[in-house]
Design a protein around this nucleic acid. Structure first.
Lengths: 214, 214
DNA sequence: ATTATCTATAGATCTATAGATAATGC
DNA sequence: ATTATCTATAGATCTATAGATAATGC
């Protein structure tokens, strides 16, 4: 049936992919209930019937996107902190920055994932479990190094899960709340680039102070 | 009043308010596009026509709720930190805890406000400006005290806006992302109460270390 | 023979209103 | 006379599919 896509289909004339990319934009911007399949089809430059031909239902199309995005969120943490080449403190500083950069490059991602997982936790259960499984190993690995470093008196001992939640909270929230923050920061947030550059530095500062031995 | 047994007599007396309360629940849970006016009417125990009789449109009913909630978010910051009776460091510690408690008591509020403001920033512009105006005074006041305290060498100098964003990021994110966090924290988050009690302590710790003089 | 695409439309849902009727206040 | 409430339904969307037709691969 649809399983075997031929290799000579170039991206620009691959309608299935066009629909996926259009769906990605629409769903990320408006969420499941706000998105319209007609709009997606229109943005993809195909008739509405094609969307159903390839994905049967709005729900199925949505789940393709949601799974993709949940995975991306999980991967972002792995990619940011899974670099064992640096000593722990530098590894964490580097991780905060990498994770921040990823969110900066995908500012709509966290809101989307957070909302849709909240709206229907059962919808994404398998994907979530897969992510936690991988993240679990990263955490265990980091915790071992953390404990060792703390024993040498180089850092304040801390539960790695707790530290990671501090980091993602600080990194993600400013992006998802930017429209609210902007008027409060007034001129300071007028230059979006600069605002987030400072944010990144602040988050690194907060986390470094959190683990610093007192 | 023999007319007491008539069908039109309302048990809860104020249907307009019933609709508002039902709308609040529905909109907070599902957002504007996910909410259904029929469901709201049903939950309020009135016919669907009544909803339009009192509020004309879904949009107007929604804006009543959104304005209310934006104001509540702003007030929560004011109420938490607007207590000039304590010395600065204690005032901040107390503020972090008060703000956390408010979010804990209204866990759906931030997601709702953040989403809807993001989806239609123009819809809430007046309300946002009103909030920023009030918060602005709090910030100015706190900054004066912060600078004075820093001059005495009791804290590390910091921009108050930056510090407040650290605080609300740490306090709000764990609530809006809880369904994602839960499986990763596994057993540690099984007891929701305890998980958030620890979070509160962690957030206080992070912020105290952030302003501590080095 | 199968896959891709289009037009047209069914069917479901959802917002909103019209129009009738009862209650309330003056 | 005005306000509150109900029933019934219009009108607008939106998802999904049927059925015809073109393109592609064997």
């Amino acid at each position: 049936m649809l399983a075997n896509k031929t290799e000579r289909e170039t991206p620009s004339c691959n309608k299935e992919n066009d629909i996926l990319r259009a769906a990605e934009r629409e769903f990320l911007a408006k969420g499941f209930s706000g998105a319209r399949t007609v709009s997606i089809a229109q943005a993809a430059g195909v008739t509405h019937a094609m969307l159903h031909y390839y994905f049967r239902t709005k729900e199925q199309l949505f789940e393709r996107i949601l799974d993709e995005k949940i995975q991306a969120m999980g991967q972002s943490v792995l990619a940011a902190f899974g670099q064992p080449r640096l000593p722990l403190v530098e590894r964490i500083r580097d991780g905060v920055e990498r994770h921040f950069d990823f969110i900066a490059a995908n500012p709509d991602l966290p809101r989307f994932v957070v909302n849709e997982v909240f709206a229907h936790p059962e919808r994404s259960l398998i994907m979530q479990q897969r992510i936690s499984f991988v993240v679990e190993r990263l955490i265990a690995d980091l915790q071992v190094e953390m404990d060792a470093t703390a024993r040498r008196g180089e850092v304040e001992p801390i539960d790695v899960r707790t530290l990671l939640l501090d980091i993602v909270s600080l990194n993600i929230f400013p992006f998802i709340a930017f429209p609210i923050i902007e008027p409060i920061f007034g001129g300071q947030a007028a230059d979006r680039e600069q605002f987030f550059a400072r944010r990144k530095q602040e988050n690194v500062e907060v986390i470094m102070r959190r683990i610093k031995k007192q």
